[in-house]
Design a protein around this nucleic acid. Structure first.
Lengths: 345, 345
DNA sequence: TATTAGCACTCATTTATCTTTAGTGCTAAC
DNA sequence: GTTAGCACTAAAGATAAATGAGTGCTAATA
């Protein structure tokens, strides 16, 4: 059976109401609120068809209908009318980009915060640095009589640092010497090339500098941190405002998964089309734990960092609004990127 | 009326059971589980006394008793028997201190994570740097043709950094020049002395360096960040496992407050005795929102940072365990501090 | 005099039953 | 093809009765 125009309209009406109320929608409600030129009986007939076609579900006889995953799917795919952002909303979003020079990671966490605040859903983001990051320079610098600061600067402009306590004083001259040797050994190396073996090899060149092991430990730790995926979660408490999670145990479970790096990673890792907004509905989800949720997600690539950002909400998400917001932010992001590239040329 | 030994025993029994079950405790239960040489009737009489004295409350006639704030208070103050940590627990805690060189802030967040995992309560911590932090040195360093890295190093070994896009290439020599001027202007200054006025004043000395304003902006931002109080929250979802918060709305409210920097700040700011463990029970709390909670807290002072760390749980918290854990961590922390100081001497 | 058995009483919780309500599907008329 | 009408269904709500965990008090007991 084909989806007639009328059927589509009814489906839309049901989805619209269900998104707002979280209650099954009955034929009379649709007649009153959306399609007053048809009688409830007619609408009922159409609804029965829609159910048979798999777009609707009925929690029990004598309840109204709720959309199925498939129902949401056609709703989303067949051009849902766009939510138009208010001026205020746009301004608010631009706020996140005010300090454009900021580190990519802090831009992403600001975006997440704004997205979650404005949609009332949960924003999640992964962020990983490019894999071929190199060591731009290493530095050792005296802070006071017994402490030196070790720094590792990467060619994406990242800085890692650590205080090291020394046994005897190391003055500026000595520190410069050590710095020079460090750079001659390691500058230009890929971060992933920093291994205990390589470090041990170079160790001999630092005779007389007792704390070199601490420096090496710092380098290893930093290298590991740089390669690690970071994860941002914002607004997870918003989940508690949906009647879907009025049961505390269910709420606890979903919050645990949302705050769990591993599952979040899996959730966000499937961008089929690079750089396009993707909508994942209910059971389309790779993780069972999120089968009651929908996700609007998109991959990004910004200042040496890449990853995905997503909005997680109940299945009856306000797709129109969530997608529009995501789209707007994505455009803003793209602007930054092209600006940055322009300046580079 | 005096608290006889028997009354104290009964009070303890009630608190013990109530901490476990969260249900009002009746006379028969106490007789069976704790004091089998007295009849329920006798225990009932004592309970009536204890209620009159303000140590117990009765949710309604025909319910057992629950401890009042005052009840918990005498329980906590009159030497509750200490929970003895298992070897495993001790090892787990020491894990947090493995990398002793770490930055104070990351030690605190590791401690928070371990505390919340082991107690199943919520760990919160504030962390503020000493107020008289000075600029040790400033640096500007070329990263590639169009980007320089600005760094600000403070005398507590902290590093702030930011990438700045430039219009024309700035080579190493030029960068060193700028660095030298920056240091002659600002090295040794207190962070709080960095004001727009001071910066504007110095601006003239950087003619020919178009991006000085970006550097100044970075300095202002960094100075502000350094002076800002940081807040760590870990395990707030644990709150959802207590029957006290089986109502989602109540749960949401407390989670919102727990994740709100302002209220957390107030919550943790009242250490009457520096460096001692303090127990705040229910309504003793400065904030109404937390009147159903108890807090075990303690101030700390580590590597140029100071603040408080606390454990938040329901009023019927396992005080014995929570206090012991906190005490253990506090000792470990003190060890680090003294080690560090030793090395300095 | 302190303890305890016994008992009437209270009130939240559970269970059972009935009622209401919001919805359906089907049939027959328009 | 549309709709009015009606019997039917199942959840949700209301009411009432039964249950049970606990109390306080009194009078008997050690």
């Amino acid at each position: 059976m084909q989806l007639s125009d009328r059927k589509r309209k009814i489906l839309q009406a049901i989805i619209h109401d269900y998104i707002e109320t979280a209650e099954p929608v009955g034929s009379r409600t649709i007649c009153k609120n959306h399609i007053s030129d048809l009688s409830p009986a007619t609408i009922r007939n159409e609804m029965a068809d829609l159910e048979e076609m798999g777009y609707l579900e009925q929690p029990h006889t004598s309840a109204g209908r709720i959309p199925s995953d498939l129902g949401y799917r056609v709703f989303v795919d067949s051009g849902l009318e766009r939510y138009r952002l208010t001026i205020k909303e746009m301004l608010q979003m631009q706020e996140a980009f005010k300090h454009k020079m900021r580190e990519a990671n802090s831009i992403m966490s600001e975006i997440s915060s704004i997205l979650s605040q404005m949609t009332n859903y949960t924003a999640v983001a992964t962020s990983k640095r490019a894999s071929n990051i190199k060591i731009q320079s290493l530095q050792v610098m005296p802070i006071d009589a017994r402490r030196i600061l070790a720094m590792m600067i990467t060619n994406d402009g990242g800085v890692k640092n650590q205080l090291i306590v020394t046994h005897k004083e190391i003055d500026g001259v000595r520190a410069s010497e050590i710095t020079a040797v460090l750079n001659s050994c390691f500058a230009g190396m890929t971060v992933s090339d920093i291994t205990p073996e390589k470090l041990a090899e170079a160790g001999a060149r630092f005779r007389g500098f007792a704390e070199i092991d601490d420096v090496f430990e710092f380098m290893l730790k930093s290298a590991a941190e740089i390669e690690k995926q970071e994860i941002i979660v914002d607004g997870s408490i918003n989940m508690l405002s949906f009647p879907e999670y009025s049961d505390v145990n269910k709420a606890k479970r979903i919050l645990e998964y949302i705050n769990d790096k591993k599952s979040l990673n899996m959730l966000l890792q499937s961008p089929k089309r690079e750089n396009e907004i993707e909508v994942i509905i209910g059971n389309e989800n790779p993780l069972d734990e999120f089968k009651d949720c929908s996700i609007i997600m998109c991959s990004y690539n910004l200042g040496g960092r890449s990853g995905s950002i997503g909005l997680v909400g109940p299945r009856r998400m306000n797709y129109s609004k969530a997608i529009s917001m995501m789209e707007y932010l994505k455009n803003e992001l793209d602007n930054i990127i092209s600006e940055r590239t322009d300046e580079d040329e």
